[in-house]
Design a protein around this nucleic acid. Structure first.
Lengths: 160, 160
DNA sequence: TTACATTGTTAGTTAAGGCTAACTTTTTAA
DNA sequence: TTAAAAAGTTAGCCTTAACTAACAATGTAA
């Protein structure tokens, strides 16, 4: 029953979950806009997802997620956010690119890798002594292609 | 002319480039084995790639890459290696999983992100004072879910 | 040098997932 | 309250990329 969904189907589930957060009930046209596909593609996808027990969708009516659908959507979204944060916070990729890229990678990363990335971002941001020196140093390295001349900036001591 | 190749076509180019490094001339059967697809799929792919000017392939004969084919294959391989190294060296993903995962992600990462990842791995490994303390600290964090009790281990001083 | 195994190709099928065109249902505004 | 607009669906088509079955070429061993 819990068959693995394709990247495309995961995108539909994720989009529905996002739209559900607004006050409006979710409609085919909204999903279409959100994903940049035409409405017939949405109808088609919803039929498949309904068969798999992940959405409910009455003809010409509203779209909703089943419990299992919510579970998967949240999982995808979690992967998305983890990747986006990593790209943005650690690799200093600009916000829009990071979001785009997260959308593509979120479907191909293993659970383990996502876990590690998550811990990594955590490690980088919840440092007990403020932003760790190595992260400053990394940014310097991104910019200049070499380590800072005097080693880490002052905060490295704090991190130690 | 330089039309963007699909993930699948990139895989074929990459596989051919790998096989070319052995002493044997590259054959359809080898590509088939290397990618885990049947021979007709290979023939089909080679026809497309030949049309795009990326491989040459005489019927019932050897397979080779054109200059442009080599360029793309090397680019894919470079992405692959960068990702694999990051997963393996920084996130401590085991070797086989890292390779598998790199195969999937290599097709979806932007050039910028690959560059940053590359610099990151470089930053982490070519530290002027030996393995940086924060990397040890990161591994501790992976294992125990929290920063090391006494801050970085001794090598952090070295890094600073 | 012929018979058989291996290798490669062709033709046709399937599945996913997009699209357009045409039709139906629902909503809205005159 | 009815006509037009908007929203949704259906049907049919296209592309990618795999597959099997059947056929063709090549290589090898008796």
């Amino acid at each position: 029953m819990k068959k693995q969904q394709t990247a495309s189907m995961e995108d539909y589930l994720e989009a529905i979950a996002m739209l559900r957060q607004g006050e409006q009930p979710v409609r085919v046209s909204q999903i279409s806009k959100a994903l940049g596909v035409k409405m017939p593609s949405v109808t088609n996808a919803l039929n498949k997802l309904a068969e798999d027990g992940l959405v409910h969708h009455e003809r010409y009516g509203y779209v909703g997620l089943t419990t299992e659908g919510v579970r998967i959507a949240e999982d995808v979204f979690h992967r998305h956010e983890t990747i986006r944060l990593f790209l943005s916070e650690v690799l200093c990729i600009d916000a829009d690119t990071a979001t785009d890229e997260a959308c593509r990678i979120e479907h191909t990363l293993s659970a383990t890798t996502v876990q590690r990335l998550e811990k990594f971002v955590e490690f980088a941001s919840i440092c007990p002594y403020g932003r760790p020196g190595w992260l400053e140093s990394l940014r310097y390295y991104f910019k200049h292609g070499e380590h800072p001349p005097n080693g880490c900036p002052s905060k490295c001591k704090g991190h130690k």
